[in-house]
């Protein structure tokens, strides 16, 4: 056997082994392999880097403020959980805090982050993810210590929503929210910065023109996202869609996605 043949066979065996490993759970394996380093990086950022900044900039309250902010966020989510439960049949769901470890993976994909909670903490695929400001997205992949969260800005994400109308005289106005899609391709300047495209809400009642800044919340239909979570606000009046049978509108999300440092994942009790 020549050296080249041996090399080709070795590469073929390696490729087959990689394929088998992928099928067996490649995502989870890779996520677990980098988890210790990323967790250490997050710990450094929050406990050492912040204190060094406090020292150099004399920001004596920076560490305490960051800790209080996280505690405040956790209390807000606990309050939301208690107020949105339907007694007595449904017990309040548990929201667990998860630090953001990385944004966009190794390719800088815009609509996903990896967080530092996994199946060992009770996180399941499809679980709702939120911040105190509003809905963030859902869990798409899980490993023992990490999870990948897909944002609602992803074009393949669909959320059943409800529009809050003043006084409620128009009854429930339901719609379907979807991510903004690849509109930045057409606007080359926007693709230089991290810009969240407006979301789209569709299948709204044709007879009702909704005003700008109307609040969009989750409807709770489908059982994935709890009812009442703020999703965003209409940017303009709703318009008739191409079929002229329904109305559609653009929504600016309530959550500041690039600034997320911690998210809350809903766990089954």
């Amino acid at each position: 056997m020549t050296k080249k043949t041996g090399t080709a066979i070795a590469l073929g065996v390696l490729a087959a082994a990689a394929a088998l490993l992928w099928i067996a759970g490649g995502h989870a394996l890779a996520a677990e392999a980098v988890y210790p380093a990323e967790r250490a990086g997050t710990w450094w950022q929050r406990n050492v880097n912040l204190r060094l900044r406090t020292l150099w900039r004399r920001q004596n309250y920076a560490v305490a403020n960051a800790s209080l902010r996280r505690e405040n966020d956790a209390l807000k989510m606990a309050l939301f959980s208690l107020t949105s439960a339907k007694p007595p049949a449904e017990a309040p769901r548990d929201w667990i805090s998860a630090p953001v470890l990385s944004r966009g993976g190794v390719m800088g994909v815009r609509n996903r982050v990896r967080v530092g909670r996994g199946s060992l903490d009770g996180v399941t695929p499809g679980a709702a993810v939120a911040a105190p400001e509003g809905l963030v997205g859902r869990v798409s992949q899980v490993s023992p210590h990490t999870a990948v969260v897909t944002f609602i800005t992803d074009p393949e994400c669909r959320v059943s929503v409800q529009v809050e109308t003043p006084g409620g005289e128009h009854g429930a106005v339901f719609g379907i929210l979807s991510g903004g899609g690849a509109e930045t391709v057409a606007s080359a300047d926007l693709s230089v910065l991290y810009v969240v495209n407006p979301l789209r809400v569709q299948h709204l009642k044709r007879d009702l023109v909704l005003p700008p800044r109307a609040k969009i919340v989750t409807s709770g239909l489908g059982g994935v996202f709890p009812r009442g979570l703020t999703v965003g606000f209409l940017t303009d009046e709703t318009r008739e869609d191409e079929t002229r049978l329904e109305r559609t509108g653009k929504v600016v999300p309530a959550v500041d996605f690039p600034a997320l440092e911690d998210v809350f994942i809903r766990r089954e009790n």
Binding site: L21, A33, M107
Partner: peptide, 11 residues
């Protein structure tokens, strides 16, 4: 392999 697993690209 790591780039595909962590980059959300197909294997």
């Amino acid at each position: 392999f790591f780039a595909d697993a962590l980059g959300f690209t197909p294997f």
